[in-house]
Design a protein around this nucleic acid. Sequence first.
RNA 1: GCGGGUAUAGCUUAAUGGUAAAGCCCUAGCCUUCCAAGCUAGUUAUGCGAGUUCGAUUCUCGCUACCCGCUCCA
Length: 522
Amino acid sequence: MASDSDRNERMEKIVSLCKRRGFIFQSAEMYGGMNGCWDYGPLGTELKRNLKDYWWKKTVTEREDIVGMDGSILTHQDVLKASGHVGGFSDPMSDCLLSRARLRADQVPEQSGVAVWYSGAKHEATDWSVNTEFAVLVPEGKDPDSAKKTARQFYGERMPDKKISPKELELIEEKREELESTTRFNPANGSLLTEPREFNLMFQTSVGASSDEGSVAYLRPETAQSIFVQFKNILETSRQKLPFGIAQIGKAFRNEINPRNFTFRSREFEQMETEFFCRGEDGLRLTDEWLEKRLNFYGEIGIPREKLHVLDVPDGERAHYSSKTYDIEYDFPFGIQELEGVAYRTDYDLKKHGEASGKPIEYFDEQTKEKLIPHVVEPSAGCDRTVLALICEAFDEETITNEKGKEETRTVMRFDPKMAPVKCGIFPLLKNKPELVNKAREVKELLLPFMNVFYDEAGAVGRRYRRQDEIGTPFCVTIDFDTLGEDGSDLEGTVTVRERDSMKQERVPIAELSTYLLQRIV
RNA sequence: GCGGGUAUAGCUUAAUGGUAAAGCCCUAGCCUUCCAAGCUAGUUAUGCGAGUUCGAUUCUCGCUACCCGCUCCA
């Protein structure tokens, strides 16, 4: 197991490579950056597109029972009121100043007693003082002087010299007041709490020129809601029967308190979600089936099964709507973190939207002649998180010994060829030989319609190989003098194909080149 | 949100209260017959804003961003 500092160093190298080679940049970097937002550069965009295209192909194109949609990001406030996103999940929180525990402000019990307020504390011997307001609530019947111990503890933590006992501190008492039914103090230790803060994690905006109550809209916090809200329309127009799914790839927004770990927790992110509707009795079984399908998917894009972890989210930690949730987690350099949640959301969402809109969402089963509210299983994958996992998984530094016996480091992004941003590098062996250059350009034109290629003629060919290694290009093609048939070579019309991981070379006729490569990159 | 740390060129690192240095990378040219060769030339930096000072990249303060640990994550 790598140490923490190794893993940190690895992550720093990955972030650095992402910037150096144009995978991912910080948003608004030239203005000092924007917390929690990231931009994809040319290669990052190709990589992300390959992932989304493959997901769509596997989820929608190759299945008869799943259809796609693309919903608006701006979301009607009533949709999110019905789903519970407005109101329900923005609990005011208070922090304990002493223990730093975070409490839900509406769950702090009412207390009575004497509040002892302090404006600060000082330590004469070391000429140290602090002017921070603090207070302790002493319950009725106890000596108000007992507040001193708690206050000394609070101010003691702020002293630079930890060897001095907080008992030597002189407290600056401000006032004492009798309070009844207050909720501003931590019942566990009497310490003052911070003012309650709203944690509304949705971005709110207003639609239309005049902003009044009715104009409030939100940037969607998940793509799922637009699927639920369009369920009836899609059911009627797509001629699907239960069980069937609706899939969507799109942006979602959460005002995360604390963005962290490169692109992992961003305020703006893309989801790849399927809502798979079914009869209630099939929900749990399908949840297990989807888990397996999704694990296979990650294997197909180059994330090995042993780096994935399945968390069966226990009761009490699941979202309010879910009666079963699996988290698929990946072993990132910064820890094991969630890539995708496979959640059985029951009939919660369709029921809520039916109630709130006054238009019940029902499905008529023609065989059993019954009306029912479909249940739903939701495999919801984080697109940006999966891109990050692909990058972390691909990153490798290989120590190789060159011909002069010198050790050097080869940086290789070992992307699965399906995911690689560039599929093939194309090089003339030498730049100053027009025959080679012309032939190489011909080969480029030949491959261009089939795949993303990169033509490079600068410098020594070895350097060009290494450059492609660093962006994960699986194949490089070099046009040399044998290709031209000089000296009567029987290799005329063939090129060298060099493979990224093994660095092995193979001679392939130009006529077979596109077939050769296409077989290896899909 | 709390605490700690960091901020000099695309990257990695120097130096300084008084002209900011180097290597790698990148660009152009020469050369080069398969794994970061060589030569020549060139572009690019003290995160932002105040203060102290004759003068601040350097000292002080604030802000922003990033990293680490907590916290949070419908």
